[in-house]
Design a protein around this nucleic acid. Sequence first.
DNA 1: CTTGACCTTCCTACAGTGGCAAGGTTCATC
DNA 2: GATGAACCTTGCCACTGTAGGAAGGTCAAG
Lengths: 150, 150
Amino acid sequence: MSAKSLPELAAAKQQGLYSIGRAAEVSGVTPKMIRHYESHGLIPKAARTLGDYRVYKESEVHALRFIRRARGLGFSMNEISGLLSLWRNQRRASAEVKRLATRHITELDAKIEELRSMRAALADLALNCHGDDRPECPILDDLSRLPPVE
Amino acid sequence: MSAKSLPELAAAKQQGLYSIGRAAEVSGVTPKMIRHYESHGLIPKAARTLGDYRVYKESEVHALRFIRRARGLGFSMNEISGLLSLWRNQRRASAEVKRLATRHITELDAKIEELRSMRAALADLALNCHGDDRPECPILDDLSRLPPVE
DNA sequence: CTTGACCTTCCTACAGTGGCAAGGTTCATC
DNA sequence: GATGAACCTTGCCACTGTAGGAAGGTCAAG
């Protein structure tokens, strides 16, 4: 739209506000992902300068850090939505948070188990594979075997 | 295109050929995924009837089963591409197969470790959460904590 | 006023899987 | 030979999460 040449961001900086780049730096969430989270409603739409640049308050940067940490624990964006609203709700019951966390732990356990059984099956096959220049290979044999009669 | 009313699929069936639906049934790969794999070059383009229906030979169904089993072991489409060409190559060296498998095992181990450390961190937090109707919650406290000085 | 860093939006891609829609084909049955 | 059910076709959208690039606008400083 219409351009504007006021030193807005500089002024913003004076007031403790962040551009998307600086918010990214201090939160550890890339500008790319910040926009992504915004477009998916995980965080509210950021305020804009007249030049249409996003500006963030300290509290919003704080939320970004929260998201980053939650992602580090493997929470999905949906789960993080829930965590964020509990976080912002001073009247939450910690039981709700715990329920979300416990459910996530169960999911993690399921994934771990799945990967472990894959790993075990494959390690077993690899163990029996000569791994030389001959073509015979129990790994390929297994992959091409007919599934057991179910 | 131009229509055709010959009982082609019926004739094909007599010859041991499969429509995509029947190939899906016996291979355990959905029609959707069969088309997906074809469009991504994992399997060659299927032959077509005059009515433009895909037809599969027994050997192609066999390859689909191979893919399904490989996916069950967590191989990516790319890795499966490699496995398939080794499978089809009678002069392969089993060492190559083993290398692919070993690399995949390493990847699985890394993922398992990642999930396990998430799980451990979260379980720890959950342990200290009262899980009652009060708002205090060490889980949220941890998520909103500033990262340790790096 | 120019320059370079930074910002904007929009599109692409990856890996997989699933769903729906609008339309064509096959084939058995009236 | 028309009808209808079952199946097929392509194409687009959704989900989850991350990343890259292009084309262009903005800002601050020299």
